[in-house]
Amino acid sequence: MKRFLSLYAALAFAFLHVPLLVLIAFSFNGGKFTVWEGFSLRWYQSILHDPQLVEATGNSIFIALASTVLSTSIGAFTAYGMWKRRAPVLQGSLYLSLVTPEIVTGISLLAFFQYIFRWLPFRLGLMTVVLAHVAFSVVYVTVVISARLTTMDRSLEEAALDLGASEWTAFRRITLPLLAPGIAAAALLALIVSFDDYVITSLVAGVDSETLPMVVYAMARRGANPVINAVSALIVVLFGVLIVISERVREA
């Protein structure tokens, strides 16, 4: 039985990892087709010569950074606020937003933006994408920072308060520095979920603000194009690096 389990586990790990490994391997293929024709970096070079990909990457980076700064700040305050006192309604809504299918979040944000833009001089674009990303990543940030807070000793802050610090000073000087690794890990997570999102983004992006996942999606639908292999490989590596950093800071 033990041997059977080991064999089975090897197969299961292959199932989980081989598709991505093959994809990455073929991003270095010299030929255009799924036949190995020697090592080449031509698909990576052609990323740089594709203005659509370059612009979409720029958009994705801008959106990810902007929404990460906002959602991390909001999430840090939220986690801290909920650590100090219960907020069942807010907590319930946050969790509900976590389990809401992406497509539902996407269409409701689309309906909402279209509705309020009847009275406001805005239209769908980078800004609506940033707001949408903030809306769905606040809960991830809050969960990660809350996890860090549960390991923290409340008496440190109480000591600061007893010694005459105001609540704000106690938060800023005691709790915030102790929370820093958790906040950094949460920010990296927010970066990833923002950079990765396709479903919600495609609905609220409007016509002239394509993101990288939107371009990858469009290329994938159109048919075989080895440039996507190269883009995918870069995304896999980028996410891998972010995750490793995030694990490191969380353990710090």
Binding site: L16, L20, V22, F26, T34, Y198, S232, I235
Partner: peptide, 30 residues
Amino acid sequence: QLVVLPFWTSFLVRTYAWLFLLRDTGLVNT
């Protein structure tokens, strides 16, 4: 970690990997 790792890769990329393998001109058919 090995179980969680692919989960941390872009969902879109992971789905695309299967398209790459399975479509008519994909690796498996080739």
